[in-house]
Structures are given as structure tokens and as C-alpha cells.
Design a binder for these strands. Structure first.
Length: 485
RNA sequence: GGCCCCAUCGUCUAGUCAGGUCCAGGACAUCAGGUUUUCAUCCUGAGAACAGGGGUUCGAAUCCCCUUGGGGUCACCA
């Protein structure tokens, strides 16, 4: 495990709902920072003004904090490198790009976006390599300055060497080499004066003292451009770690068309943050001891960034469901109840005290917190009455169900103590005496009490409902059967 | 299409860097049993993979090459 403090960052773009991929990358970044006693920074990458959504930034903060992936420096927290919003750092990019212009590592390009689009079309038709044709690359310096002074619209491009190759080491994949002729003269500053990701990202990583760049694999191919910018700025390279991209079932890059990707969605469904983090950690990494259910603390102890696998993990909700159930059952009852409350899954008008009574009966059955309400409505409200068909089990008959329910009703109306053990024994005795099979009594009883085909243990259901309710519901079922025969 | 990355059960993966202990281990899912008043939990068991072909080697899932397949990327988006 690395012992030098890592300064790492994530740089989400405020263009929509908080993305599960952001949490995935944040998890690895933050964990490395915590392991090494370094810092985890949050930088808002809002240089694309056309896709910018004002509400998005706060949603990203909220989602990440909800997951427990808190940061040490960021737009809302401030820090020694403020500001942490790229749109507020334009002066710095300008200054750096002037430097690049002077050193000849960058040049102005006056080609219009339309012209370039046409060129690209032509290249596509002729099956040529797609890329900038280099029109303005060798423009006279004086002319270039004059045209810029006259405010002629232009972008600033990186001057990529024509020959040679650029290489770097990805700490997960090994050495990557790419011929420079394959690298386009990347736009550094757009016509609107804002930097592109490539420039802003490198300048900020240098300014922020970032030591490890941990990001998604989709950036791997543009890393040589970044390397060239680092070199032009005469700054040593950080460590690069490209983690695999989360995938749809068809193995394409995860997308909202084919998968739920909004962290808000997972929260609304009642997924626990513990389960989400656990699941994400398992995408590309596996615990040395094989124990797959774990929390953030243990992940921090065991995780090794260099052991992330290179394969492409399919995002499979089925396993998340299993993990969610495991974490629900691992949590202590008070904590779970509090969580259900906090996350807004307590049914309308129900107090935590009331919920505490039924919770133990349904924990073993809950996969997502949102199931709490449907699984417990029978307790908080009188359910819709069961149908006569509901009350007759497959191998039973209306007469048998009626007799069983009537006998149970009578038993409960007697002076029998209304306690789990006593009721259980009395029902067993009744079953034995009448020589009835258990399901013939319990299935009608289940529907009488809960109006569902699946429910918790019926003795427990009765105890929690109370004698009067139980008798009322059984009698209601008796009436239904009597009417139908 | 060019370039780059990747390749073990349906899915997540261990094993690959330091070749033999792997006729490949675990987990989810599936199926079959057990416990049981239903569902679930829990327990037991089963089926299920080294993409293909060449090398190197006494020996290859592990190293090399080719093929195939998948993905990413080729924006004045990130």
C-alpha cells in the first residue's frame, strides 16, 4: 500500500442527474486518499456552457454526501486551491495558454466549426483518418496576432509533434504508446473563450497538486494529449489509473437507456448506501478473503488500487438486490428503523414506534426499503377483504376453510391467554384433534389477516395485531365465506 | 474504417506479473433437496468457464504470435 499521501480528485460535470459512474470513480479516489492520509477533492467541470444545468451541481453534492463519499476540498467547502469550479478559473487557463502560445506549443486556428465539419465528412467519405487538416498550424505569427487583435473568432490548438510517439504508464494496464501522427491537434480554448476538458483538466491537476489521476477508461485514449500538455507546461506526470467502464448487459458503456444510472433513482428505490458502495467496490475488485459483504471501513483496509481488474464489468442489479438484503439484515434493528424513517419509507402517519413493532417480522423478506410499506400495510390499515377464492387453499374446500376459521375464532374468543406460545399450542392441539393438515388452516387464516398469499409467521402476525383485530378479521373472512356458499 | 484497451462459469470474479499444488476456486443467479403455516431467511447438493489456432517448455488458464470476438475513442462534450 502506498504510503505517500495521495491528492486525488473527481471532476463531475453538472449536466444532469448524479451518475452512478461518478460514485464508482469517487469511491476509488476517496479510498486511496483515506488510505494514504491524503486529500480527496471535488472539482466541478462546468466548462461546457451549452450543457450546463444549474440544479445539477447541488444534486451531485447531495448524492455523494448521501453515499458517505465526502470530500476535503470543493466548491462548497473551499480550500487552499480555490476556486474549485472551472468556470471561475478562466484567468488561470488564459495565462497558461498564453505561455503555450509563446513557447510555440499552441497556435490559433481560425477555421470555422462548419468548415471543419465538412472536412470531416469528406474524410469519412474517402475513408481517410479523421482529424484536423492542419490548415492554421503554420500561420504566420504576426498575421495570427493581428487577426486575433481584430477579434476574429478562433480557437487555440495544441501543436502535436508530427513524428515520434507519446507514451505513459497506466498503473493498472501497463505501458501505453501511441504514435504522434495519430494524435489530433486538440482544441485547448474554444471560440467562447472557455477551455476544453483537456486543457482545464491538466492545468487544474497541476495547480491542485494532484498525484494520482484515477478516472474511467474512456479517457485512456486521450491521455497522450494530456501527457503532451504536461510536457509543454514542463510539469512531471501524475500516476494514471484508468478503471474499467461500467457496462450494460450487452457490454456497451453503461447508459440511461439501458440501465438505471441516476444515484437518485437508487435512493428512491430504497437501496442502502452501504449496499451500493459494496456493489460498486465489487465491480473490478475482489476481497482477498473472499468475503463479499463488507463496509467502507473494511474496504479501506483491504483495497489495493493496482489490483483493479482490466475486464469490463456488467452492472447487474440482481446482485445489488442480494447485497441490499444482506446489508438490511446486518444492520441492527434500531439503526434500520431510523434509516427507513430518514429515507422517507415510513408509511403516511406512521410513527417510528409503531413501525418498530412490525419491522422484525419483515426484515428477512425485504430486499429494498421501499418494500416496507406494501409488506406492512395489513398492520397499519385494514386491508381490502380477501375474495372467497383466496380463502380456499388448493387442496381444501370452502366448508373446511369455514370450519377452520370458525374454530379459530371461537378459540380466540375463549379465555385462552393471548400469548404466542399459548395460541400456538392451542392451534396445534386443535389441528391434532381434528386431524387437519396445517396449510388447510393457515392459508385461510393468512388471507383473513393480511389479504396476501405471503406474510410473516402467523402467530407473530396475530400478536402484533392484537386479539380484537384478529378476531374481527377472522369473522370478516367467515362472513365472506358464508355469503359465497 | 484508423488507433487504443480488453478476453476464466449466464453475471461479478480468484488464479496470470514470479508456468507445475487448477481435469480451474468463491459469490450472485438457476435447478434439486432440507427446515417450514405461505413467502423469505437459513442449510445441503448439482449443472455451469480458461474464445480459437499456432508456438516456447518436461509442463501453459498463466509467456510469445496470429485469428476471432467485445469495448472505447476519433467534437470548439465531458
Amino acid at each position: 500500500m502506498s504510503s505517500t499521501p495521495a491528492r486525488v480528485r473527481i471532476a463531475p460535470s453538472p449536466t444532469g442527474d448524479p451518475h452512478v459512474g461518478t460514485a464508482y470513480v469517487a469511491l476509488f479516489n476517496r479510498t486511496l486518499a483515506r488510505q494514504t492520509g491524503g486529500q480527496f477533492l471535488l472539482r466541478i467541470d462546468d466548462t461546457d456552457r451549452s450543457r450546463y444545468q444549474a440544479s445539477s451541481e447541488q444534486k451531485i453534492f447531495d448524492a455523494l454526501r448521501w453515499l458517505g463519499l465526502d470530500w476535503d476540498e470543493g466548491p462548497d467547502l473551499g480550500g487552499p486551491c480555490a476556486p474549485y469550479r472551472q468556470s471561475e478559473r478562466n484567468a488561470i487557463y488564459q495565462q497558461k495558454v498564453d505561455h503555450l502560445l509563446e513557447s510555440g506549443n499552441a497556435y490559433r486556428c481560425f477555421c470555422s466549426a462548419e468548415t471543419l465539419a465538412e472536412v470531416r465528412e469528406k474524410q469519412k467519405q474517402d475513408k481517410l483518418r479523421l482529424g484536423y487538416p492542419g490548415t492554421c498550424r503554420d500561420l504566420d505569427a504576426v498575421e495570427s496576432s493581428q487577426r486575433a487583435a481584430k477579434e476574429e473568432p478562433h480557437v487555440i490548438r495544441l501543436r502535436v509533434p508530427v513524428e515520434g510517439e507519446t507514451c505513459f504508464v497506466d498503473q493498472i494496464r501497463g505501458e501505453i504508446r501511441i504514435a504522434n501522427c495519430e494524435i489530433d491537434d486538440q482544441v485547448l480554448i474554444k471560440t467562447d473563450g472557455f477551455p476544453t476538458y483537456h486543457l482545464a483538466n491538466v492545468v487544474d491537476d497541476i495547480e491542485f497538486g494532484i498525484t494520482h489521476v484515477i478516472r474511467a477508461e474512456e479517457w485512456l485514449i486521450s491521455t497522450p494529449k494530456h501527457v503532451l500538455i504536461y510536457q509543454a507546461l514542463e510539469h512531471p506526470l501524475p500516476g494514471f489509473f484508468h478503471v474499467p467502464l461500467l457496462r450494460n448487459a450487452d457490454h456497451s458503456k453503461i447508459s440511461k437507456r439501458k440501465n438505471p444510472v441516476s444515484l437518485d433513482w437508487f435512493r428512491e428505490q430504497g437501496y442502502l448506501k452501504e449496499a451500493i458502495l459494496n456493489f460498486l467496490a465489487l465491480m473490478g475488485w475482489s476481497p482477498p478473503d473472499g468475503q463479499e459483504v463488507f463496509d467502507l471501513d473494511r474496504f479501506q483496509q483491504e483495497f489495493n488500487i493496482e489490483k483493479i481488474s482490466t475486464g469490463a464489468p456488467v452492472f447487474d442489479l440482481v446482485k445489488l438486490d442480494w447485497l441490499n438484503g444482506m446489508h438490511i439484515r446486518k444492520m441492527d434493528p434500531d439503526q434500520l428503523l431510523q434509516r427507513i424513517d430518514e429515507e422517507g419509507f415510513l408509511p403516511q402517519g406512521v410513527s417510528p414506534q409503531q413501525a418498530a413493532a412490525v419491522l422484525p417480522l419483515v426484515v428477512e423478506r425485504m430486499v429494498r426499503l421501499a418494500e416496507f410499506e406494501p409488506r406492512t400495510t395489513w398492520f397499519f390499515n385494514l386491508p381490502e377483504p380477501p375474495t372467497p377464492e383466496d380463502l380456499v387453499p388448493r387442496k381444501g374446500s370452502p366448508e373446511q376453510s369455514l370450519e377452520a376459521l370458525q374454530a379459530t375464532s371461537a378459540l380466540l374468543k375463549s379465555d385462552l391467554p393471548f400469548q404466542a406460545e399459548a395460541v400456538n399450542e392451542a392451534l396445534d392441539a386443535m389441528l391434532a384433534e381434528k386431524q387437519w393438515k396445517k396449510p388447510l388452516l393457515f392459508m385461510p387464516l393468512r388471507f383473513a389477516l393480511t389479504s396476501r398469499s405471503d406474510s410473516p409467521d402467523l402467530i407473530e402476525v396475530m400478536m402484533v395485531l392484537g386479539r380484537d383485530n384478529v378476531i374481527d378479521r377472522i369473522d370478516r373472512a367467515i362472513a365472506i365465506l358464508e355469503c359465497s356458499t
